[in-house]
């Protein structure tokens, strides 16, 4: 099987609103496929269609060879899905939650204990088996939810903003687990607002207003999307100088990244001009994925209006 997920003109409307508009995507086995876009751009709707939870209005697609429209029940059995608001049972312990999900996926009795133990090890939950989810930190809850989603050993895993609101340390740990799963052959589709996570995906699809507007590797996106010369500069009162800098004729864009400004100049020739203007030496950089994201979102809005 060349692709584990493939869609053709996949579309979903709600009333007169088109949430997902003729999307074509292909995902290879073992790939971490990042799905990025502003809020309300159609990420969750697309993912829910791929999981067999929502019927497409038009277009077609398949997951693991099963048709989205006709075989959604089979898809649901074969995949792992962790939604934004994952549902753990608050009155069951960590251990009982895992056993419950093992039962839901009809994992044979003699296998269950072993699988639950595997998940506890994978999620770094050892010692917490008897705790109720309410007493776990955000990061632990999230890893327990992941354990519940993959206890059936699905070959493809859908994660909808899995790392919202957990600590940086937990986010790193979570993504390490995802990378390990992918290295072992699991295909992972993940939506996120964190650009450092997007950087670690093998492929990124960017969606805006229900349409797919970019689809490539992180390196290609960083090298090909933005035209001009990106520099990084450290100015006092950086936040208050954005508009002033954007009004310079050779500046195309300016945005804040932590304490630094990223400034997109129309050409390399103007770096020296810019340095003279600010009185500070700017450093040429490869645009970050966040730069690419902002640039794509702006472009899309321009085209719409």
């Amino acid at each position: 099987m060349e692709y584990v997920v493939t869609t053709c003109e996949l579309t979903r409307t709600f009333g007169s609103f088109t949430a997902v508009d003729r999307i074509n995507i292909n995902i290879r086995p073992g790939e971490i496929y990042g799905f990025l876009g502003p809020n309300g751009s159609g990420k969750t709707t697309t993912m829910r269609m791929l999981c067999g939870l929502l019927e497409p209005t038009s277009g077609s697609g398949s997951v693991l060879g099963y048709d989205l429209a006709r075989e959604s029940e089979k898809i649901k059995q074969k995949i792992g899905y962790m939604s934004q608001k994952f549902s753990l049972y608050d009155d069951l312990t960590v251990y009982e939650n895992l056993v419950f999900y093992a039962g839901m996926y009809s994992i044979p009795y003699h296998e269950r204990k072993k699988r639950v133990a595997e998940m506890i090890e994978m999620a770094w939950l050892a010692g917490r088996e008897k705790d109720l989810p309410a007493n776990l930190s955000g990061g632990l809850k999230q890893r327990l939810a992941l354990g519940c989603a993959i206890i059936s050993r699905p070959s493809i895993l859908f994660l909808d903003e899995p790392t919202s609101g957990v600590s940086p340390t937990s986010r790193r740990m979570f993504f390490k687990i995802i990378q390990k799963l992918a290295n072992e052959g699991t295909t992972v589709m993940v939506t996120t607002h964190f650009m450092d996570e997007a950087e670690r995906c093998h492929n990124i699809a960017f969606i805006s207003g229900g349409r797919l507007i970019a689809n490539d590797t992180p390196d290609n996106l960083k090298n090909n999307v933005i035209e001009g010369c990106m520099v990084e500069v450290d100015l006092p009162d950086a936040m208050e100088r954005i508009e002033e800098l954007e009004s310079l004729p050779y500046v195309k864009e300016c945005s804040i990244h932590g304490p630094l400004l990223h400034v997109l100049l129309d050409s390399e020739g103007n770096v020296a001009v810019f340095d003279r203007y600010t009185g500070v030496k700017a450093r040429e950089i490869t645009p970050s994925l966040e730069d690419v994201f902002i640039s794509l979102a702006k472009l899309q809005r321009k085209q719409e209006s």
Binding site: N39, G165, H193, I256, I294, K298
Partner: peptide, 20 residues
């Protein structure tokens, strides 16, 4: 309280401009 929770990077930056 976490005004930018779950908001995309561009909207987050705009929001911070307003706060400033």
């Amino acid at each position: 309280d976490e005004p930018t929770y779950g908001v995309d990077p561009e909207s987050r930056k705009e929001f911070w401009k307003i706060l400033y």
